[in-house]
Design a protein around this nucleic acid. Structure first.
Lengths: 189, 189
DNA sequence: TTACAAAACTAACGTTTGTTAGTTAGAATC
DNA sequence: GATTCTAACTAACAAACGTTAGTTTTGTAA
């Protein structure tokens, strides 16, 4: 009994290469070489390059969607929901930092229904987040800034967290959560 | 006398395509078609695809470097320097939003000395920013959070500004500056 | 030992890629 | 009017691409 299938191994290797050079710049021969086999052998396990991308991206997109739905159904304040969203991003980043690169940079190379589905999920996600922020402003919990500025200030930081969170030594996840919540909610001055 | 050279037109078209699909996914035939000419004709004006990328990226990188040097030589508080950096990013974003995509996503496809130079410039830039933040914390101007968290929270938002600042209608540049400074410095609660 | 399935291989395919060479039409300069 | 320059063209190249077909090796179960 093997703990991971060969297919899963390919996906892991591919996500690492995609992170380094981007989906288009990585060839099937690159992926094969990184696994010590020939390109044609990959096709015993996967249907093609596109499957690698769509698996990586859509899996993660569903994690985000489910996480956001859970947050949405909570009963606390809007600020506490935002805190939950921040923690959601950090949790996903910590154990899927490679695949996040594909989600952020290569989603536009999805094809057909996969592309359509991803874009829909992303729009829904942003709309849910925007709704939390607007309610927070209405309730007087948040400063009355342009909601779009608030939304994308937070989201930009969370989305690119994968690029830097592991660069400088090991930031403990809980410390990171605490610091990021503080910085994103209460600022730095 | 023409106000822009043909070469400059190619660079503009290329940056637009690079933003949409990424450097590797854009072919010379794509660029040529977008200009209504054949791929081979491009070579009357440029030396190759790589020149397009390095021109786009290094030009912008120098803008950032010069801007940061100017900020560094100011005499105000560290917080006012950070405010200047925020404004610098917004100014560059507003009139070079296409090229910023290449700088953010495709710099790794630079070759040889160009790659080396870019990475050096980016490291210096981050180091200068980090230094401002550290001094700000020491001086008691900034909250004593992990400097790395502060640095990349701000930088992530500024670097991906090009992705969203023009999506929702026209945000006036000065309003945008004011809002972003407020959100990034003082938070949202 | 045989049988079977999993996972590798070699060889090749049709396309697309960036780029070069050589040519041509029109405008500017002498 | 002859010459030079600019900017387009056609044709073609070698290399790299994703993928397919058919074959061989390897490990497991009967």
């Amino acid at each position: 009994m093997n703990v991971t299938t060969r297919k899963e191994e390919i996906i892991v290797v591919a996500s690492r290469l995609f992170k380094e050079k981007g989906y288009t710049a990585v060839s099937m021969r690159d992926i094969a070489q990184a696994m010590g086999i020939k390109a044609a052998s990959l096709y015993n396990h996967i249907s093609g390059k596109q499957e690698l991308l769509s698996t990586l991206v859509l899996r993660l997109a569903e994690d985000f969607t489910l996480g956001m739905e859970a947050v949405q159904q909570e009963s606390g304040s809007q600020v506490s929901k935002i805190r939950k969203v921040i923690e959601l991003h950090i949790d996903i980043t910590v154990n899927a930092s490679e695949a996040l690169a594909a989600l952020n940079n290569d989603w536009m190379h999805l094809e057909g229904e996969d592309l359509h589905r991803f874009v829909g999920m992303r729009e829904t996600y942003e709309e849910n987040f925007r709704s939390i922020i607007k309610k927070g402003i209405e309730a007087g919990e948040l400063q009355p800034h342009h909601p779009e500025v608030i939304l994308f200030s937070i989201l930009s930081t969370l989305r690119t967290l994968y690029l830097w969170y592991q660069k400088r030594g090991k930031l403990d996840v809980n410390v990171l959560k605490k610091d990021m919540v503080a910085v994103l909610l209460r600022g730095i001055v």
